[in-house]
């Protein structure tokens, strides 16, 4: 029930509602719980409501963190003499 994925707002419909694209499926959701979400924003959707806007810059930062200080990187560096 709590499983949900980020969805992109494709179009604003009646006031307070929007159509999102959930992995190819278009669905109408309520924006009653978020302020100023617009077309192109990604939102976390849960039981038909956007719970929060997704901060796209923070998403990039988190992805960078996953690659940080990796043992694999260090190994690779050792093997290539730091030229990687």
């Amino acid at each position: 029930m709590c499983l949900a994925i980020p969805a992109r707002i494709e179009e604003l419909t009646t006031p307070g509602n929007a159509i999102v694209n959930l992995g190819g499926v278009r669905k109408e959701i309520s924006l009653a719980l978020v302020d100023d979400a617009g077309v192109g924003d990604y939102v976390i959707v849960h039981v038909g409501y956007a719970l929060q806007k997704l901060d796209q810059e923070e998403a990039e930062r988190t992805l960078e963190m996953f690659a940080e200080m990796g043992q694999l990187d260090e190994l690779r560096e050792e093997m290539t003499g730091g030229a990687a």
């Binding site: 990604y42 992805l63 990796g70 043992q71």
Partner: peptide, 19 residues
Amino acid sequence: MKYVDEFRDGELAGNISAN
């Protein structure tokens, strides 16, 4: 899917697992 697939990347998983 954006903001989903990148967060399931196998190579990065290996990296975190090694850490």
